[in-house]
């Protein structure tokens, strides 16, 4: 019976490993491949950490299984053996993880800096400024673009263009957006871009990303912001520079709509 329990407890880590192994093929893993250069780098960091914890996990589970099995094989009458620590063992399991952590901390630094520290953002985004302001709100994303040919300012301008839940950006170059919130905390999360940033009341947070391929990418809220949190779905529409410019012009025309129908149109 004791061996049954040894096997029973050993069974579960094997199940866990099995499911981890098949997860990528069954699409239980990432939402597709990373669609931005930064996303690829973040993903490689993720895999590095995954490998480290996988090795540690398998190692500890193997040790645990060995201990279970060995103890189960003992006689009923045998007396239990109590250990009272081992200085060298403790040193090992403190120093080794410390080295691992320091290694991770140093190894990820350049990615982190480029991802989050404004002075390390791509030069072009710092010169160009933000292409749009994304203001989260219970429960939608309000978008403000500067008028074509102008720069985005923090305060609204009279000729700004507005839309909601559909952010258009050009492909093939880094773009920066200003992330804000109009009420509580939200988080801008684009799974395909591996991009996530909290929106904090009172702050304007610049977020940059680059999308090489035209297409639609999800935006979801990743900070429980209220009962309608699940409704905060939006999308990024990445399109060629020309299509992006055409979109802004179209938006401007729409926003200047005065409803006047010229007489010749009526007679047609």
């Amino acid at each position: 019976m004791k061996k049954f329990w040894a096997l029973f407890f050993y069974f579960w880590p094997i199940v866990a490993l099995y499911f981890c192994w098949i997860a990528p093929e069954s699409n239980w893993w990432f939402p597709g491949e990373a669609m931005s250069p930064m996303g690829v780098r973040i993903e490689s960091l993720f895999y590095l950490i995954l490998w480290i914890v996988a090795i540690v996990f398998i190692g500890t589970q193997a040790a645990l299984g060995y201990a279970l099995w060995k103890s189960a094989a003992r006689d009923e009458g045998q007396k239990a053996w109590y250990s009272h620590g081992s200085h060298s063992l403790e040193l090992i399991w403190t120093i080794v993880p410390a080295f691992v952590l320091v290694f991770i901390a140093l190894y990820q630094m350049d990615v982190w800096a480029e991802y989050r520290v404004q002075s390390f953002y791509p030069d072009s985004t710092r010169e160009e400024g933000s292409v749009a302001e994304l203001a989260a709100r219970q429960f939608e994303w309000r978008i403000r673009y500067p008028a074509p040919g102008k720069k985005l300012s923090d305060e609204p301008e009279s000729d700004d263009l507005y839309w909601v839940n559909e952010l258009h950006v050009p492909t093939g170059r880094p773009v920066k957006i200003n992330l804000r919130t109009q009420d509580v905390q939200h988080a801008f999360f684009s799974p395909q871009l591996r991009l996530k940033q909290d929106a904090v009341p009172g702050l304007i947070i610049p977020v940059w990303f680059e999308i090489p391929e035209a297409g639609e990418y999800d935006i979801v809220c990743a900070e429980l912001c209220g009962w309608g949190h699940y409704k905060m779905r939006a999308k990024i529409v990445a399109e060629s520079e020309a299509a992006y410019k055409a979109y802004l012009n179209r938006l401007q025309d729409e926003q200047n709509e005065d409803g006047y129908k010229a007489a010749e149109e009526e007679t047609n």
Binding site: R137, Q138, F139, E140, R142, V164, N165, E166, G228, K231, R233, A234, K235
Partner: peptide
């Protein structure tokens, strides 16, 4: 589609 800014009516554009 566009919601009503200034109220709780959100956009259902998607």
């Amino acid at each position: 589609k566009q919601g009503i800014p200034g109220t709780y009516m959100p956009s259902f554009l998607l």
